[in-house]
Amino acid sequence: MDYFLELLIGGLTRGSIYALIALGYTMVYGIIELINFAHGEIYMIGAFTALIIASVLTMAGMSGLSVLILASVVAVIYASAYGFTVEKIAYKPLRQAQRLSPLISAIGMSIFLQNYVLIAQTSDFLPFPSLLPELPFMDAYAQFMGSSELIIVATTAVMTIILTLFIKFTKMGKAMRATAQDRNMAMLLGVNVNRVISNTFIIGSALAAVGGILIASHIGRINFYIGFIAGIKAFTAAVLGGIGSIPGAVLGGLILGWTESFATGYVSSDYEDVFAFALLVLILIFRPAGLLGKSTVQKV
């Protein structure tokens, strides 16, 4: 029973990591039906920025929580700026083009950003300091869950709730939903669609940066390639839950995390990915739009 609980909690952590990144994928897809492959790179850039700022601050003699907060703020702003710029450069000019064109542009952006960081920084793995505080009361439960894992799970939960409330109750959220439903109609009704889309990218990138900092602190190392691997899994989670749906991304992430955790625990870690993707195929056969996705008529 202990073992089951350990795997359950391990899967929860892993699922929260996927969910945090999947939120960005699903938001962008919900608004402009684009799979933003550069999202994983924004996540990676967020982590790198936090690492650089944290190193500078630590050298300047600061420590503890202030480093975490300052580094996070700078990383979130920097990553948001990247997300905003990527949209303006790579996606906006292609908004009226066929659906495939922005997709290719996104893949190109992803490769460009990876290599940019590779050249500007390094190809080596860098140690990432554990910026997250060690919570003393978690010490007794270290077998099941560490402090960083608890913080990741809690952050994902809080972020999801804030995001849901934001979309439901604010004016910008309403504009987002309108743009998602019918962009032309929203424009006719006076919604500044360009601003809505920019905001979506900024929010998505900010979430990715938060995810980058948390996960890099948890794993303890980063290199230019971490965005790709995490991005693929998060994208799978978003599709599993129904791409375009916020609760779907979280559900998809958790299901993926639990599948992998239990597959490793009870079968073999050799088949971790096999189980994860077999589940994806199964769900897509019976629910082509994902678990919580709405099946809409193709607008091609």
Binding site: E6, Q143, E149, I226, S261, G265, S269, D270, E272
Partner: peptide, 20 residues
């Protein structure tokens, strides 16, 4: 006797298995 996936975000399941 098991293989892990390089680059995965988390290895807690296999670590729990080693303990078990």
């Amino acid at each position: 006797y098991e293989g892990v996936t390089p680059g995965a975000v988390d290895y807690s399941a296999v670590v729990q298995k080693i303990r078990r």
